[in-house]
Design a binder for these strands. Sequence first.
DNA 1: TCCGCATGTGCAAGCGCTTACGACAATTCC
DNA 2: GGAATTGTCGTAAGCGCTTGCACATGCGGA
Lengths: 333, 333
Amino acid sequence: MTLEEVARRAGVSTATVSRVLNNAGVVKESTRRKVLEACRELRYHPNLHARSLAGGKSRTLGMIVSNIQNPFFLDIFCSLESVAFQHNYEVVVEHTDYRPTRLVAAVRSMLGRRVAGLAVIVSEMEPSLIEELSASNIPVVFYDVGHPARNITNIKVRYEKGMQRTVEYLYSLGHRRMAFVGHHAGLDPLHERLRAFLDTMGRYCGEVRYTTAVSSDSPAGGRQAAHQLLASGFEPTAILCVNDFMALGVIRELRERGLSIPGDVSVTGFDNIGISEFSCPALTTVNIPRRRIGEMAFEILVQGQSSAMNSEREILIDPELVVRESTGPAPEG
Amino acid sequence: MTLEEVARRAGVSTATVSRVLNNAGVVKESTRRKVLEACRELRYHPNLHARSLAGGKSRTLGMIVSNIQNPFFLDIFCSLESVAFQHNYEVVVEHTDYRPTRLVAAVRSMLGRRVAGLAVIVSEMEPSLIEELSASNIPVVFYDVGHPARNITNIKVRYEKGMQRTVEYLYSLGHRRMAFVGHHAGLDPLHERLRAFLDTMGRYCGEVRYTTAVSSDSPAGGRQAAHQLLASGFEPTAILCVNDFMALGVIRELRERGLSIPGDVSVTGFDNIGISEFSCPALTTVNIPRRRIGEMAFEILVQGQSSAMNSEREILIDPELVVRESTGPAPEG
DNA sequence: TCCGCATGTGCAAGCGCTTACGACAATTCC
DNA sequence: GGAATTGTCGTAAGCGCTTGCACATGCGGA
């Protein structure tokens, strides 16, 4: 089914059909109806590839995330998708599983699609990408990785702040043995979180003992990390997790071992994903405004084109501690 | 950046550039290198729209789901995406929020993309779609909704079986007051689950009292449904949820009210999503093999083209009860 | 009656790519 | 040594759509 067949059927030219389908130009009501009728009869579906090729412009945004199974990323996607949908844009998403090679492939794929803008919400990085994207001339927003450039806006969360607040809070509750659970420590932004933990710990030098464990980004990974942590003989009174997703698994493992939360061990997460409120006990965590990040991304990519295109912007977000049930005073002794 | 510019730069024709980029035809090693070099220098990214328009064939699969935030759907997507990726296919996903109009739009969008195959994993339906998709001539797999046709394969789960097993199990534990928590009861497949509950209940006529509640498909929805259930004065000893996602919220609400699970109330879910194991207590649920469904979908769409295209297939899946910690003997009295 | 101007359509040139098909060299064979 | 291969590459015709431009009407006013 092509435009031409529809045109023939309706007894008009392809130009007219195109105009009807795009509400462009002025078309007599009677011919418009004829055309629409023909479309229906022929079950015509315009070829979107041809359309974007001929049209040259795109109403598609691209989004790349590290792990779409982690609600943190999924929420940002849904938020972006939601505003995009309202503005008659669509967004295609790709995920990288934290692998730089897949990230590069995903970016190329997005550029090949000629997206109108690209949001890169990942934790891994490939230095050459910045240059490649900057040269591509499409608006780009990075989260966490990368730095601002002509067409690149950066959204950054002050993890150190969140981490610091968490640690101080726990310290004030009497915790002196802490552990950090993370994943993919080799990747920059994730390593940064671990650094934030270590740095903060450094300030309590001598007073607080601590250790770290890494596994994969999932509840199962969190569980494994907790297992490994406890197997080491170290008995933390508080475990800080790099994100809520893993914290779920940590909690599970602790409970399995008969440890009460927060009675024996306090647990904190990061992100404040939806289910963190439904876990048991409800998770103390650090909020990252995912909804707002998605909305900001849209504005930057679509509306801020003129304004943002020539201003190397960086947006900083201050995360806030959300105290719920998974933390409490350190146990005696 | 176009093929032509690359060709000019490399001192060859566009045909040759195309050939090296697609590993098609035989190209002398030296010219191949020249071309690749030119691509790199010019930061050339082939226009995928032009490619698929000219090529005519597509290595893209489409997938439509009702609620991508529900891990059930997300898991199937990830499974499909994973096998697709291994076979050098890509999959674009769209979600409908359980709205038939969005479903129709999504299908049209997918047809416009000229996907090589389409998986429709939704709970809402629009009758005309079957005909439209059947006429489209691309391989389609439906989950739950729709019926088999020339190019349409149907994957169906015997919910009644799962429901029946759950109810029998609970009955054997002494439960005589049960409730069902669902969402979007107006939609066929979801209503079917409710029907399965009611039908099974009917067989215990007189012996078992029961009621139902509906809300939205999310933990928050589950919570609200539980709230509404308990506010009605009815005191179930077991609550069966239409899926695990909502069950999380139900559990939360019960705990909030000081009810112990399963001491006071047993709770069951459906789907066996990953976090159902990490909830607390771990959820008794009915397993639906999402991984396998994703893999089957791929085979049907891509590999089974010749075989499946002309055989109106329907695949039935028997779900199994997975007993964990959220269910137990009914309380005395 | 003729001109000017909306208003509706059609023509045709692309958009950037793939892919027959054929041209041309460099081999190879008898 | 000439013909038949074989290996490389260029030419050009689309793929299905958008869109600038020209053209054909019908109208009112001079």
